[in-house]
């Protein structure tokens, strides 16, 4: 049984579902960030799988390069925001920071 495009897509779909679960259900803001990283990784696997099985052109890999660049920028800015939230509210639990609701 050879490994086809479907196998890579299934792995990527499972990773994506785990990421969505972390984003929805975890309380800690840093866990939400980890979920976002899982989602971006699954998208990258999809890009590379389509690039590989669609005739080995370089376009998918270029898209993955830019996804990685934006993930790095996103992680830096998001962690700065989380640090600011911790300084102000002394918690990073996303359900307790409901300041705008009041």
């Amino acid at each position: 049984m050879t490994i086809t495009l479907t196998h890579f897509l299934i792995v990527s779909a499972i990773l994506f579902s785990f990421g969505i679960y972390a984003v929805i259900s975890r309380r800690n803001a840093i866990m939400v960030l980890m979920g976002i990283e899982l989602i971006l990784n699954s998208a990258n696997i999809n890009f590379l799988a389509f690039s590989r099985f669609g005739g080995m052109n370089i376009e998918g890999q270029m898209a993955a390069v830019f996804v990685i660049i934006l993930a790095a920028a996103e992680a830096a800015v998001a962690l700065a925001i989380v640090l600011n939230i911790y300084k102000r509210f002394h918690t990073v639990n996303v359900d307790e920071i409901s300041f705008l609701k009041d």
Binding site: L33, M34, E37, S51, Q61, V65, I68, A72, L79
Partner: peptide, 25 residues
């Protein structure tokens, strides 16, 4: 998936950069 450059980039940026940032967080 024949993406050697991306694999090394993944190790450098995610493991070396983003994971360390997350641990600091």
């Amino acid at each position: 998936l024949n993406a050697d450059f991306l694999a090394v980039t993944q190790l450098l940026i995610y493991v070396g950069g983003i994971l360390v940032l997350i641990l600091f967080g």
